[in-house]
Design a protein around this nucleic acid. Structure first.
Lengths: 125, 125, 125, 125
DNA sequence: GTGGTCTAGACCACG
DNA sequence: GTGGTCTAGACCACT
């Protein structure tokens, strides 16, 4: 369910957050669904429980999941909606990346091809 | 010449590297040209000299600049070429960003608009 | 009789204690009256029996209820009196809350309005 | 500057957050001011650095402070404003507390006296 | 069993 | 020096 690269420059807990976000967006994890417990996941991923906890906390504070002490962590009912709404904030990243590609002589056509490919249902991330 | 945002979450030395890259790509800094000395730049930007040094080291190790002991740092003669060549390595970033935008319900048309805008010379970064 | 919010950050057993306290103070539960059994209540509220037991234990140790083995739990004859007496212990909470409201620029008039409203029989909790 | 009660039921990091909030509201800590470093504070309070870090993180994510890796943590320029704006969210707590006091036979006059006392600049928290 | 907090101690990146 | 992350292991409260 989760794939962790301990050598990556991005923190483990951030990898978890990002992956859980895409799982929610893809519908692979339904709203209201219970997430794997901190301990279970920590063992499966051979990662310290504190690290899992930190990832869950982060998402909790963003309202994407909620945790009920003694019961478990659950996906918020409006998690997907929240994520969709916040996506527009990523457009500036697109702009700066495109500008860099343009300077690097990547032809517009190549970029458009990538857009088409991804949006034709092609690329999974 | 350089604009540093000390509050940004991206490290200062990375900001310097990125900006120098775009300056080279834009031709604002010519190949062979001498770069400001570490001390000069550290004072101008009120940034720790170590930080400047780190940025220069990073670019040196990538062959984009070279330092002549006792004289200073200079832009490599093939800096621009190297940068252009390495740009293709950034395409996977584009793919994953596009996939995220798609999941976040950003319409393809919106993305295309951004591509057009940037490639029509619109956006400067 | 009881309303439990399993998503609340306050523990379920504390919700039960607080509600039972106000029921006693309001006279909705008379002194000497028998309380629902742990099992009954746990089913009605779909809450773990241990949780109900914990709430009852808490109130027992405070002398608000007493349990007769084999018969059930009963409200102490002096429960209401005890609760009223212990209320003064809550005044420091009022002070610190007021201090925080003052720092947060809540006007005195607004606070007074709330006092009036509650004491005019307005607010039920 | 900070007072920690390790025996309190409220978590240490929450005690820190609350105290820092009141310090900001009182103006004892100015906006833009640098906070004590994680390590320094952890030694002064004989608390684990991670705990201090957690408190700082919490306030960072709420926009009350910002941290610059390698430099330190600083109070946000709009910290006080944010805190004042969020104070209204505490009014429901006032209502429920007042309702409990009323049930516990605390006379309205007594409550009003406390309000007057605090708002006449009396109580420091 | 669950989540939450805390300590101790380590390592990294940044300035 | 700074903040940030991670591990290991412990304890607590709640269900």
């Amino acid at each position: 369910m989760f794939m962790i690269d301990p050598l990556s420059r991005t923190a483990i807990y951030e990898q978890l957050v990002e992956q859980l976000e895409t799982l929610i967006l893809k519908g692979a994890v339904q709203q209201g669904e219970q997430l794997p417990s901190v301990r279970t996941l920590s063992i499966k991923l051979s990662v310290n429980p504190n690290t899992i906890q930190k990832a869950y906390n982060e998402m909790d504070s963003r309202g994407l999941i909620y945790s009920v002490p003694g019961k478990g962590c659950f996906v918020s009912m409006d998690a997907k909606e929240r994520l969709i709404e916040s996506t527009r904030e990523k457009l500036p990243m697109l702009d700066s990346l495109l500008a860099r590609l343009k300077l690097g002589r990547i032809p517009k056509l190549t970029v458009i091809e990538h857009v088409e490919m991804v949006y034709q249902g092609g690329v999974s991330v």
